[in-house]
Amino acid sequence: MDSQRRRSVLALIFICCAISSTSSNQAGTNYRDSDEFFNSDSICISDHYIMESYFTRHTSLDDSEFRNFLLLQQCSDKVPTQDSNIVPLTSLIQHRNITGEGSHRNLLTSIKIQFLHHSESEFRELVIVERLPLGVFADPFELQSLQKRSVFSDVSVFGDTNLELPSFRSNRSVVEIHVEISSRDYENGKIRLKLPLHARYQPLDDSGYSRVEFGEPDLFLCSSHVQNQRHEQRRCLVLSIGRLKTESRSVFWDIPAGIRGHTEYVSALTFAAAVLSAFSILVASVLSLKVESCKNAKQS
Results as ranks from 00 to 15, higher is better:
L276D: 07
S110F: 00
D205A: 07
F220V: 03
F66D: 04
E213D: 12
S280L: 06
L239Q: 02
R149Q: 13
W253E: 02
S42M: 04
L239I: 03
V9Y: 09
F252H: 14
S250E: 06
G258W: 02
R6H: 04
D62V: 15
P196V: 00
R96Y: 04
A27L: 14
D41R: 10
N39G: 15
H198Q: 14
S76R: 15
I181V: 12
R211T: 06
L10C: 10
F214N: 02
T161A: 09
Y201H: 14
L10G: 04
R234S: 05
I93Q: 06
S24M: 13
L61M: 13
S280C: 14
R211G: 00
Q299F: 08
V291L: 08
L134G: 08
S210W: 00
T161E: 05
P256K: 00
V174Y: 00
L132W: 00
E122S: 13
S20K: 15
A272V: 11
L282P: 08
Y54W: 04
L239M: 07
G189P: 03
V251F: 01
S40M: 12
V226Q: 09
R105M: 08
Q4K: 13
S156C: 15
F137Y: 08
R149E: 10
R234V: 03
T246A: 05
L146W: 00
V174I: 05
L116N: 15
N228I: 10
S156V: 02
I86V: 14
S182N: 11
I43L: 05
S84A: 05
Q299G: 05
T22G: 09
Q26N: 13
I113A: 01
S224W: 04
S119W: 06
S103T: 15
R5T: 05
Y186C: 13
R7I: 13
T263M: 09
V291C: 07
T90K: 13
D33F: 07
S91W: 02
V151I: 14
L276E: 08
L72D: 09
P140A: 01
S34G: 12
P256S: 04
D254E: 09
R192T: 09
S20D: 09
Q233A: 10
S150L: 13
H118Q: 13
R32A: 15
V212F: 02
M51H: 03
L197P: 01
S156P: 11
F252M: 11
Y265M: 14
V129K: 01
D185H: 05
A18V: 14
P203H: 01
C294I: 15
L134N: 05
F168L: 07
S21P: 11
D77Q: 09
L197T: 02
R5D: 07
Q74H: 11
Q229H: 07
N25E: 12
E187P: 14
V79M: 14
L289C: 13
A284T: 15
D218C: 09
I181R: 00
C236L: 06
